[in-house]
């Protein structure tokens, strides 16, 4: 049961202790990685599949002497590649992360948070409202229409326009 370790790997004297057994890596990274993947899939079944595939693919390739930052980066890179595969299979196009560069300018600890205020703040009020009702509160189209005082057909169109406007705004931000 208890597997004795062989001699420890050579380590630079004074380097911080690194115990990169896979259990620790998994413990530390599963929740943030899931959050990252969920924010790119927006649904639980895909988020769970992509997270599983990422860990199963990445963990066996991790060397024991890599830094926490490198582990983080490697898991993210692997997740991006898995996400791109899923996207290509399902939607037939290359996945271009619409605001990837904006993400990377944020401090590392904020990258795990799903903060959509930059997306929403850039939109006109009615676009912002329709997206808040639909996505953040999970309202049906009918409920959204009632809450906004517009017709159902109008709410349907409004949500699509709002998404496309937000997408266009994100793309501009990346270029600027």
């Amino acid at each position: 049961m208890a597997v004795p370790e062989t001699s420890p790997p050579l380590r630079v004297v004074g380097a911080p202790e690194r115990a990169n057994d896979w259990e620790s890596v998994y413990q530390e990274h599963v929740a943030p990685l899931y959050r990252f993947v969920y924010s790119r899939t927006g649904n639980t079944p895909d988020a769970e599949d992509v997270t599983s595939t990422t860990f199963l693919r990445a963990l066996p390739r991790l060397r024991s002497d890599v830094s926490p930052g490198e582990i983080h980066a490697y898991l993210r890179t692997t997740a991006r590649s898995v996400l791109a595969d899923v996207w290509r299979q399902r939607h037939g196009t290359v996945l271009m992360e619409f605001d990837d560069q904006r993400d990377s300018t944020q401090p590392a600890e904020q990258q795990d948070e799903v903060d959509v205020s930059p997306i929403l703040d850039s939109l006109p009020a009615n676009y912002r409202s329709v997206l808040e009702f639909r996505f953040l509160r999970g309202y049906s189209i009918r409920e959204t229409a009632a809450a906004m005082g517009v017709s159902v057909a109008n709410a349907k169109v409004l949500q699509l326009r709002a998404l496309r406007r937000a997408a266009a705004t994100g793309a501009r931000d990346v270029q600027s």
Partner: peptide
């Protein structure tokens, strides 16, 4: 493609 990703991002929030 980008609009779909905005949708995923919003839903995740």
């Amino acid at each position: 493609s980008a609009a779909m990703q905005v949708a995923a991002r919003l839903r995740a929030a």
